[in-house]
Design a protein around this nucleic acid. Sequence first.
DNA 1: AGCACA
Length: 266
Amino acid sequence: MYPFINGGQQQLKDGLPRTGYGAGRDRDVGYPRDRVYEDQMGRAGWRDGDGLGGGGDMMGYGGGLGGNELGMGPGLGPLVGGGGLGPLGMGGLPDESQLMGGRMGPLDVGMGGRPGALGLNGGAPEPDVLRGGLDVLPPDASSTLFVDGLPEDCSRREAAHIFRPFIGFKEVRLVHKDAKRADGGKVVLCFVEFADARCAATALEALQGYKFDETDHESYVLRLTFARHPGPRGPVRDDPYRVGGGRDRGDDYNSRSRGGGGVGRR
DNA sequence: AGCACA
């Protein structure tokens, strides 16, 4: 029923808009829905949001956004507002004591029982924790990896399984070509798309030299580099003449080639 | 070293 109410305490303490996640959790967990149910009466909507197991995540996320200036949607707006206004409105309502009582009890339990949840109290999760040693990318880093050394019979699904566990993985494209030595050998090239260059670099580092068949000692060792012409679409970043206009909707994974490219033109 | 899709 009441897993942990850390968000409630947080909200009572500082009430910063940064703690949107906590506010969302608080409303989701510690707020009596009966009262809200009568107050706001969004019956179907409330029921839906409440019943979902993953609803907590959604609420928390929405709460964070709602606390700022980004309006999520017409449906989420009232929900978030209700959650945020809950503690304020408590003062004038007769259920106040009951609210407080229900709140103070599980609060301590939550604090003691879930040390992992303390991370949520610290505010936004630090990206530094997630960063391995890859904060410096090579100059040719891009969001697309070029992978060579895949076995000839490698399927797209098989290749995707290798890269899927990596953060930011988007898709994999296989290309069949014939090897240079015209002995009938064919080679499979692979282009792997990631969300940004750092994600691609992480996978590159991790999979460099990956053996497809571990029993076979000498064959099918993956070689990974950054693709020369990255991106699932046409080249956007390498052509200085095209920087000004044209299609511009590529995700800006890198800001280095954004302003004028490498051409000193004036 | 070997780089396609639009």
